[in-house]
């Protein structure tokens, strides 16, 4: 089992940047269908800024890494995703506190804090066709896992299912809500980017093992 420590947190954020760059066009297309089309570009730019900041040196703690992400996402993403993801990472950082590494309950608490921050900021409920529809099942799934890595794996899978389940929904929050019934039949871009971000946490945990890991 991989320690979900500061080095992992840095790898997670770098993996987010890589994955969101890869999926940039896909997120732009999803957002263009029901929003203003800037989500892919914004997320790519935001996480690239996170990586630039991480290049200054390794983070001292999980909380410090998450706070850097919060700060950079809020500053650089623009649009609603900036304050939403920024708040998520900020609350996650506070929930992690001084822990050196995360076990299952810590991951659940962290994801719950992130979800609560998004709900507080965006005022969306489950079923409104927003990123909350990925975060909410992720929190529930994380609560059923024994260790931190398993918690993230369960959370990522639940977020992916939650994102797919946004397709038939009619948007009730955000720009897409102006489209009414026409928003049905498309995935919510924020829910999709959430699933990429949570999957990246798992990849970052696994990648240490494949890279040799620790004894």
């Amino acid at each position: 089992m991989t320690d979900l420590d500061a080095a992992w947190a840095d790898r997670w954020l770098r993996e987010c940047a890589r994955v969101l760059a890869v999926h940039r066009e896909e997120l732009i297309d999803l957002d263009r269908a029901i929003g203003d089309g800037d989500h892919g570009e914004n997320m790519d730019r935001g996480f690239q800024a996170v990586v630039d900041k991480l290049d200054d040196g390794p983070s001292e703690s999980v909380a410090a890494a998450l706070k850097v992400a919060a700060m950079m996402l809020m500053s650089k993403v623009g649009g609603a995703a900036g304050p939403l993801y920024g708040t998520a990472f900020l609350r996650a950082s506070a929930a992690v506190g001084e822990r050196e590494s995360l076990d299952g309950p810590a991951v659940e608490a962290m994801l719950a804090a992130a979800r609560d921050g998004i709900v507080a900021r965006g005022k969306a409920d489950p079923g409104d066709k927003t990123m909350v529809d990925a975060w909410s099942p992720a929190v529930v799934a994380a609560g059923r896992a024994a260790d931190g890595e398993a918690a993230f794996a369960a959370a990522a899978t639940a977020a992916e299912e939650g994102a797919l389940a946004t397709k038939p929904l009619v948007a009730r929050k955000g720009r897409a809500s102006y489209l009414g019934e026409r928003s049905a039949g498309h995935l919510d871009p924020g829910a999709v980017s959430t699933s990429y971000i949570l999957r990246a946490a798992v990849t970052a945990a696994v990648s240490e093992i494949s890279a040799g890991g620790r004894p």
Partner: peptide, 14 residues
């Protein structure tokens, strides 16, 4: 509008 309020709220939190 919308995200301006959200960004301002985020600043307050910081």
């Amino acid at each position: 509008l919308g995200s301006a309020v959200m960004t301002a709220e985020s600043v307050l939190e910081f």
